[in-house]
Each structure stands twice: as C-alpha cells, then as structure tokens.
Design a binder for these strands. Sequence first.
DNA 1: CTTGCTTCTACAGCTACTGTAGATGTTATA
DNA 2: TATAACATCTACAGTAGCTGTAGAAGCAAG
Lengths: 145, 145
Amino acid sequence: MYTIGHVARAASCKVQTIRYYEQIGLLPVAPRSEGNRRLYAQADIDRLMFIRHARELGFALDAIRDLLSLSDDPNQPCVAADAIARRQLDEVERRIARLGSLKTELMRMIDQCRGGRISDCRVIEVLSNHAHCMADDHRPTEAKP
Amino acid sequence: MYTIGHVARAASCKVQTIRYYEQIGLLPVAPRSEGNRRLYAQADIDRLMFIRHARELGFALDAIRDLLSLSDDPNQPCVAADAIARRQLDEVERRIARLGSLKTELMRMIDQCRGGRISDCRVIEVLSNHAHCMADDHRPTEAKP
DNA sequence: CTTGCTTCTACAGCTACTGTAGATGTTATA
DNA sequence: TATAACATCTACAGTAGCTGTAGAAGCAAG
C-alpha cells in the first residue's frame, strides 16, 4: 500500500488533485490507515496515470469517465463499449491529424531557421485551415446552433 | 468586415470567448462600427481558429501565445523562434505518440467487440504504461519537485 | 522529545471559459 | 414606418478542473 505522496510522485501530479479526483468519483474512495491516511494500491496508480495522460491530451473528465467505464465494467454489452470506443477513436484520430499538420509546419520552420530569419511563418495558416481540420463541427458543410 | 457572431460561428466558439481573448490580448482590440459593434477581418478569423484548434489539442493559452509570436514577429531572430518551435515540436511529438498508443488500443477493443464481450480491456494499461509515455517528467529517471 | 516532513480538512484562488441581466443596435415583417 | 425579433454591448456571476494556503494532527529520525 502506498501513501498519497508516493502516488502523486508516481503520476507527476499534486496531492490535492488526487483528493479532488476521489471527491468527484474518478478515483475510488481510498481506505484509510490507523492514523487516517489514504492508502493506495498499484491499480490506483495506474488509473491515476491514465487519467493524467488523458487530461494532458486534452480529454475532458467526462470523456475520461467514459473511457474508464470500458475497463471498470468489462462485461458490459459490446454495443455500449463499442459506441464509447468508436466515439473516442474518432476524436483521437482527429487530434492526431491536426497535431500532424502542426508538427509538419513546426519542422518546416525549424528547418528554415537555418537560413537566418523566419520571414513567412505559416503556423496560423496550418491550424486554422479547413483542409487540415477533420472535426465535423468545423467543416463548412455544417453549422452549429 | 465581419461581426462577432459571424466570427464565432466560423470558429465554432462562443461570442464571449472572443471578447475574452481580446481582453487578455490573444486577439487584437477590434475596431468598432458606428453603433459600437466589433468588426473583424479574415485574418482575425484565422487567428481565432488557430487558437481554438490549439486549445482543443490541449495547449495552454501561454503556449499558444508562444506559437502566435512566431507569426506575429516574423523578423525576430531565429534563435528565439527556433527555441519556441523546438519546444512546441517536442510537445507535439509526445502527444502524437501517446494518442497513437490510445488509438491502437481503442481499435483493438472495437475489433474484439465483434466476439461479443470485452473481457480484457487494457485501455488503462495502455495510457498508464511508462513504456508508452514519452514525457520526460513521467520517466522513472526523473522526479519532479 | 522535538524538529521537520507528510497528511488531514476546509476553503480561497486560479485559468479558461460560459451564462445571465439589462440596455442598446439592427433588421425583417406587417 | 412601426414594432417585433434578434444581435451585440457591458458587467459580473458561475463553472470545470485544478492549485495554493492555513491550521491541526500524524509520524520518523536524531
């Protein structure tokens, strides 16, 4: 069993964040020691690391809850799990595509820098461009309410 | 010239968000019409779309400010621009790598779903695993303060 | 046993928005 | 041209997701 400080270091997050996740139900309520300290197992560390990575990738806590439910309830009917997985996969692919465009542009800039000055930075163009945007709600065919 | 509502629809964001970005200096102070309405040009829309995409990809406003400075000041010495671009490129690559792992796992789950039930979901394992984590601050060799 | 670190609860503060109220501008329809 | 419907304005409060701080209590080392 690990203390909250150990868990926080393992997942590179703040102690308060762990308590916050417990409070909102993303992490299970931790059992306590004699002296009232929270105690964690390796599975809790894994779960927390998953949450932190997903957060760093820009997923909302609700989306993460969604993903966690896949492993929390491995016997749920496939229709539900499949829907969740597909929904998240779409999102992941959109993100990879946009990051790819940004990466290309950043590499081009770094490469160009060898010449002395960056006179035609297209960093905005790259990520504002519809052609590079895979998100449904940004495509000209659809308008949001 | 476009109204704020038009710009908000073009970038799929809220009108208030645009005013907020102006307030914190991410967007230039918009010129006003006779009737005191903000007026925007295409360049403003592009800039806003860049910001929104970057935000969706999980970049903090400070990092976005960083990236925007690359195109705001195209004649700045290459040393500075290169540092910014490299810093952001590293981050982008880390994100792509982690999203790639998540994508693989989601695809595996969707594929497996054809069999009926998901009995061995490894979605947590994938994103909590150190082997898949490219971030310096998560590698066992280093500990954060 | 006391110095120093960790953890506890509780709550205030921060970032990045998002919503609401009430006033005013603008436009479509009668 | 009047008036209803909608967009925009300012100002400020509220939300999500943390992050910091205060003050008390637990615990380990010297």
